[in-house]
Computed example of a mutant assay.
Amino acid sequence: MKNYIPNRSIEYNDNRISKFIAQNGKCAVTGVELGVSDWHCHHKNPYHLSKDDTFSNLVILHEAVHRLVHLKDSEKIKKLIKVLKLTKK
Rank of each mutant, 00 (worst) to 15 (best):
D52C: 05
L68I: 05
V65S: 09
Y12K: 00
K2V: 09
I10W: 11
K85T: 13
V32I: 14
V29Q: 10
L68G: 04
V65D: 07
I10T: 06
L86P: 10
L84I: 00
G25S: 05
D14N: 13
N15P: 05
K79Y: 11
K51R: 14
E11R: 14
L80T: 00
L68R: 03
R16N: 04
G31R: 04
H43T: 01
C41P: 00
K2Q: 12
F55G: 10
T54R: 10
G35S: 04
W39G: 01
T87W: 04
N13H: 02
K85I: 07
D14V: 14
G31T: 03
K72I: 02
K26Q: 11
T54S: 15
C41W: 00
G35F: 12
L49T: 09
T30K: 01
L71Y: 12
G25C: 10
I21G: 09
L34P: 02
H42P: 02
D53F: 00
L49C: 01
K76A: 07
H62A: 10
R67V: 07
K19Q: 12
S18K: 15
M1N: 12
N13P: 11
C27L: 05
L61W: 08
C41D: 03
L58K: 11
Q23M: 11
D52E: 07
T54M: 07
I21E: 15
Y12F: 15
S74K: 15
V32N: 14
G31Q: 06
H70C: 13
P6R: 10
H66P: 06
K76I: 00
A28M: 12
V36L: 11
H66L: 04
K2C: 00
K88R: 13
G35I: 06
H70Y: 10
E75Y: 13
Y47C: 04
P6G: 09
E63C: 10
D73Q: 03
N45V: 11
R67P: 01
V32H: 15
V36S: 09
E75H: 13
S74G: 05
T54F: 08
K88M: 10
N7E: 12
Y12A: 02
L68P: 03
G25D: 05
S56W: 05
S56K: 12
K2N: 09
A28L: 05
D53G: 00
D53E: 02
P46N: 03
H42I: 03
L34G: 06
S9M: 06
